[in-house]
Amino acid sequence: MGFISFHSPVGDLSIAENDNLIVSIDWGWGSLEEKTPLLEEAKNQIAAYFNGKLKKFDLPILSPGTAYQQQVWEFLQTIPFGTTKSYSELAKIIGGSARSIGNANAANPIPIIIPCHRVIGKRTLGGYSGGEGIKTKEYLLNIEKLFNTP
């Protein structure tokens, strides 16, 4: 299992990979780095995302979760850069409730790459469990708005 940490505009991030698949992104700095070519590529793609040069990630991922969580996370990856969907919209498409969509988002092991930040409430941004919470979600959405040019 490989592991790399680096600084980003939303705080320190740590990425883990197992068997050449990205398995997690966490906020914070890990102590036992084991760099791999895949982790270096993930780091480069995330840096390109923050610089507005990458709108869709091209990385092999494995996001362990329930069948429902998997379904939600797969759908999240189809939401285009710079756009959002509401929790209730996703619930109508995927099934379940706005709350179950929110719970699946909160359990997302690979935030940013699986863009759970693109799901918002009807009247508010909703929640976000990474970084500084709503402040981080707002930052990610603003970056995408800024760089969302045709």
Rank of each mutant, 00 (worst) to 15 (best):
A91R: 00
V72S: 09
T78V: 04
L140M: 09
A42D: 09
G82L: 06
A67D: 15
L146S: 07
D58G: 03
G127M: 05
M1C: 10
A106Q: 07
E132I: 10
P37L: 14
D12F: 15
K53Q: 12
Q71P: 00
Y139P: 08
S14A: 15
L32H: 13
G30E: 10
E40D: 12
I94K: 00
P111C: 07
G30N: 09
I79A: 08
I22C: 03
A42V: 06
S31I: 14
S63F: 08
L59D: 04
E33M: 08
V23E: 13
G127C: 07
K145T: 13
F75H: 13
A67M: 12
Q45M: 09
D19T: 15
Y68W: 11
I25W: 04
L32M: 03
A91L: 08
K53M: 11
S88T: 03
V72Y: 09
W29N: 05
A107C: 07
Y49N: 04
I22Q: 02
L38V: 02
P111E: 04
P9R: 07
K43S: 10
V119P: 01
K137I: 09
K43M: 09
Q77M: 15
I134H: 06
E132M: 13
S88R: 00
E74C: 10
A104F: 01
E34D: 11
G52Q: 05
H7E: 15
I15D: 02
L140A: 09
Y49I: 08
T124P: 00
L90S: 00
N148P: 02
F75S: 05
S129L: 04
L62C: 11
N103S: 10
K35T: 10
T124L: 00
G2E: 10
C116F: 09
R99M: 13
Q77P: 01
K135W: 11
A42P: 01
C116K: 04
Q69P: 00
S8N: 03
L141P: 00
Y128E: 04
E33W: 07
K53R: 11
G11A: 07
H117Q: 11
N20V: 03
D12Q: 11
I25K: 00
G126R: 02
G28Q: 14
K35L: 06
Y87R: 01
Q71Y: 08
F6G: 03
S5R: 07
W27A: 03
A104M: 01
I22Y: 05
A106D: 12
L13S: 02
K137A: 06
Y49V: 08
K137G: 05
L90W: 05
L141A: 04
Q71W: 02
S14C: 11
G131R: 01
A106T: 08
I120D: 02
F75L: 11
P80W: 01
F75Q: 04
H7S: 08
E34G: 00
T124Q: 04
M1H: 13
D26I: 15
Q70T: 14
I22W: 09
H7G: 00
P80L: 00
N148H: 14
R99Y: 01
N20W: 14
I79C: 03
I46L: 09
L90Q: 10
K43I: 02
N148Q: 06
M1S: 15
G102E: 10
L39D: 12
I61K: 03
K85S: 03
G126Y: 14
M1A: 14
G121R: 01
P115W: 13
A16N: 05
Q69R: 11
